[in-house]
Design a protein around this nucleic acid. Structure first.
Lengths: 222, 222
DNA sequence: GTCTATAGTCGGATAGAC
DNA sequence: GTCTATCCGACTATAGAC
């Protein structure tokens, strides 16, 4: 491969990545139907025809954006999840499970509310949940299932249950719900609290409330 | 007014109502942008031009649907909310507040997951939360604020706080999140649980889990 | 790989007959 | 109040020049 061919490939790869970045922002804000290929191309500084060229279709770009989200969230959670998954294989003291669960909820709050770029990801995921489409399987199999199973495993230890059953799963889901509402009902929640945004200290306040509620689940079964 | 004129008015009123029913179903499923006026008119068995005639525009119909949701949910919650609001004006024993909160969470679960028609309402509301538009103010001022304040008032009593502050609000929001996740993440949750739907007994199981978590908040501050 | 130009479809709103 | 017919704008995808 000569330098000329390589530079063409690089250009293509750069356009591809700009389109994915644009897809996260635009699909996140307007949803699949609400986003137009013109918006996507403009935001990426690319040509309209670059979308079908690189991704086959608008839907192909949508799927690629979902895959990108899975990869980035895996980057941010993989170390913690591996630690939890490994710990769950052996007899795990309840105190340690509680510590893991605190770390788990703190991380989820931080990912979902902490960064500006998370706004796009979160909106993308939530819209896909509400109206499951081409990307749901990518998101669910790529990260949601694993994140849920790790949480449920920790809850099982806290409740002294040897196996994860649906009662355990429901408790894990309830814990997750306490975090998720700050995303799904962001506008209502901010208004109720008289806040304009989730600043860093407010985020820590939310994390501490969730941790306290996790503690209650633990003490409730002590 | 003669009989002839009245029958014309009735016909118009019936078309109007059919359009609102269709709007709940179609906007709920596809969102504002995803729904076309042709879908709406077909579903209602009405003519395309009936939408601008009766509601001024597609957006007018959207707002009317939001107002209709507020009215129907108020029908289902007003008695309970008035009872709670009245009780909160006087010194309320914690045991009684706990009972009210159980009734409150049970009612919310039932409204959000219990009826087939709630599927449309819930989807409509969730989509509006994600991308606040013309109907957000109608929904928030018409019912959300009041529902939240009632919950927060009860939590304040449970935590022996004389005033509702943001720490109290956050706890009330967390409780609500435990319910809401079964809506916002319906597909993921069902899949995690290996369920196809929220049947009546599963709904009662969810209600019992939420009640237990509410109890923990109460005992945690005992 | 990227561009312009365009084909083909579907969107919401309106005019005017009934 | 309801209907048909139609306008005009916006959409996605493609063809073909560079």
């Amino acid at each position: 491969m000569g330098a000329h061919v390589e530079s063409l490939q690089d250009r293509g790869e750069a356009t591809r990545q700009r389109l994915i970045d644009a897809a996260l922002a635009v699909f996140g804000e307007f949803g699949f139907d609400g986003a137009s290929t013109r918006m996507l191309a403009d935001q990426a500084g690319a040509n309209l025809a670059a979308i079908p060229y690189h991704f086959g279709s608008k839907e192909g770009l949508y799927r690629a954006a979902a895959q990108y989200i899975v990869e980035r969230i895996t980057d941010q959670t993989n170390a913690m999840l591996e630690e939890i998954e490994h710990a769950l294989l052996n007899a795990l003291p309840r105190a340690k499970a509680l510590g893991f669960l605190h770390k788990y909820t703190d991380t989820m709050v931080a990912i979902m509310l902490g960064s500006k770029e998370a706004d796009s990801w979160a909106a993308f995921i939530m819209k896909e949940q509400l109206q499951p489409g081409a990307a749901f399987e990518i998101l669910y199999n790529g990260m949601m299932r694993r994140i849920h199973e790790a949480g449920a495993g920790l809850v099982a230890v806290l409740l002294k249950q040897p196996q994860i059953d649906n009662r355990i799963r429901l408790r894990a889901i309830a814990i997750f719900g306490q975090i998720l509402i700050f995303r799904t009902s962001r506008h209502s929640v901010l208004r109720q609290l008289g806040w304009k945004e989730f600043s860093r200290d407010r985020l820590e306040l939310i994390q501490s409330i969730i941790r306290e509620n996790v503690d209650l689940v633990a003490t409730g079964s002590a």
